[in-house]
């Protein structure tokens, strides 16, 4: 094996992850709309049908409820399906299966059945695809007990979270942000696995914590650069695992920096950001030097027009402004 760092796209990392999973375990197969002949709506599975054939790369009809439900059944029956839903917007057609079956059967059956299923889906906005193709629904799924919810935001996580997800005996949802697919990064040859338990500090800092995940991570990192130029040293925390949340890493960071901005592409009301803030208030209230702040998506369906889409979403400038306001009163 080569020891040089490999540079690749997030999309390619997702593809390598699927390839490796299929090679490693006969029970694994990929199933979803246009994953085979078309190559995947975001080209993640391009070439895999030729490589593995139609038993392992299964094109389904446009039947989200049926093929997600079938994935649940197949998982209960002993297979290890990776189900792809084109985007989280369409996962709503399968929401009943995900909540009322996948998340519920293990508990409701008194632990007799487990659902070792992985569901991957694209999420997020940024390509002017308008309101039925641009929403971020991972926060909703993170509400549901029985699920594990992952948001890989780096090529390393895109490459290795899947194998950990497949090893989990419970249903795992993986949200891949559409603006990350083209992002390039290095795979550290020393890493061959990642955990799906912990948040990660992507940039250490002293003055405040920018807590985020998924497609907002690059935005938080660029905000941190902008803040650095102003002499504000921001720490960037990547949640990685949206359910269950890694409280320890969040609190450890906030206790050091004493200030936090939570950045979430979901809508503000009832958001994952709201959950994170509440936990900070519950667990670290007396260590805060400033109120918490949130940068979320404006509470409107995401519009098509570029300037409105941009205005609706969290952006580095909004993060910087929120951070500045918190640090302004710094002694």
């Amino acid at each position: 094996m080569s020891t040089a760092a490999q540079r690749l796209s997030y999309r390619e990392a997702c593809r390598q992850a699927i390839r490796a999973a299929i090679q490693a375990d006969e029970r694994v197969f990929l199933m979803g709309e246009d994953v085979g002949r078309y190559g995947g709506c975001y080209a993640v599975s391009k070439g895999l049908l030729d490589e593995f054939g139609p038993e392992r790369i299964v094109d389904t009809p446009l039947s989200e409820a049926a093929f997600v439900g079938a994935g649940i059944g197949a998982a209960i029956g002993g297979l290890r399906p990776i189900v792809e839903i084109m985007t989280c917007n369409f996962s709503l057609l399968a929401l009943d299966q995900i909540l009322n079956n996948a998340a519920t059967i293990p508990h409701m059956s008194g632990g007799q059945f487990s659902v070792p299923l992985v569901i991957r889906m694209a999420t997020g906005a940024g390509r002017q695809l308008a309101a039925q193709h641009s929403h971020s629904l991972e926060g909703w799924y993170a509400h549901i007990p029985g699920l594990r919810v992952l948001a890989p935001a780096t090529v390393t996580d895109a490459r290795y979270m899947l194998q950990a997800a497949l090893a989990d005996p419970n249903p795992v949802l993986v949200f891949e942000h559409i603006m990350l697919y083209a992002l390039e990064g290095e795979l550290d040859p020393g890493v061959s696995a990642v955990d799906i338990e912990h948040a990660a500090i992507r940039r250490p800092g002293r003055d405040l914590s920018l807590i985020t995940y998924g497609g907002s991570l690059p935005k938080a990192l660029s905000a941190a650069e902008l803040l650095a130029a102003e002499g504000i040293d921001a720490e960037v925390v990547d949640l990685r695992v949206l359910r269950p949340l890694d409280d320890a890493t969040i609190m450890e960071s906030v206790r050091r920096t004493r200030r936090a901005v939570v950045i979430d592409e979901g809508w503000r009301s009832g958001s994952l950001a709201a959950e994170v803030c509440t936990r900070i208030v519950e667990q670290a209230f007396y260590e805060l030097d400033a109120p918490l702040a949130r940068v979320c998506t404006e509470e409107a369906p995401i519009p098509y027009a570029k300037h409105l889409e941009d205005a609706a979403l969290p952006q580095p400038e909004k993060i910087v402004a929120a951070a500045r306001a918190l640090v302004g009163g710094r002694g």
Binding site: Q128, L129, A130, A131, Q132, H133, P301, P303, Y304, A305, K306, H307, L308
Partner: peptide, 14 residues
């Protein structure tokens, strides 16, 4: 994506 569009530019082609 202009506001003179039939959906005010909020919907686009779809």
């Amino acid at each position: 994506g202009k506001q003179q569009g039939c959906s005010r530019g909020r919907g686009g082609s779809m």
